[in-house]
């Protein structure tokens, strides 16, 4: 898979996950007796896609490795998690998604959930490829 395709896939996944997260937050709010109405200025949908794209960039930290050791991979993964979290916090601040620690908390929780969702989705896509490749390999494999 090319880097561009991975970045595109992640941008789409993260943007979709942010929208899903907002939907769940508003649904919860409505269930708790709130109005559950979303009023967005014009730039919010664009800011979601931009955040999705910026959040996909730290993935490059994980891709530029020929043969990483387990420790190096975990360090890079931690750096990716923190830098992506930094991007979300900065975008949230710039686009006015939160104005206090109290309103930042749901965003932080949503970030962790979205991070887990994107990893799970990427893992599932790779597993799908793995299955297709293994089936095709059986057709041409030498007998030994």
């Amino acid at each position: 898979m090319t880097k561009a395709k991975i970045l595109f896939q992640q941008t789409v996944l993260i943007s979709a996950a942010i929208l899903f997260g907002i939907g769940v937050l508003k649904l919860t709010e409505k269930a708790l007796g709130g109005d559950g109405v979303i009023v967005w200025p014009w730039y919010v949908p664009l800011s979601i896609v931009l955040t999705g794209f910026l959040c996909s960039l730290p993935t490059l930290l994980l891709l530029d490795q020929e043969r990483p050791g387990r420790r190096e991979f975990l360090i890079r993964l931690a750096l990716q998690f923190l830098s992506t979290g930094g991007v979300v916090s900065l975008c949230g601040y710039l686009f006015g998604w939160y104005d206090s620690w109290r309103s930042y908390l749901p965003i932080a929780v949503m970030y962790v959930l979205i991070y887990g969702f994107v990893w799970a989705a990427m893992f599932w896509l790779n597993k799908k490829d793995e299955k297709k490749i293994n089936e095709a390999l059986k057709e041409i494999q030498d007998r030994e």
């Binding site: 994980l62 490795q65 490749i133």
Partner: peptide, 16 residues
């Protein structure tokens, strides 16, 4: 040699 590959396993960082 692809014909000598028994199976592949996907890794977390998109390698196999």
């Amino acid at each position: 040699n692809i014909r000598k590959i028994r199976s592949v396993k996907a890794d977390l960082n998109a390698r196999m």
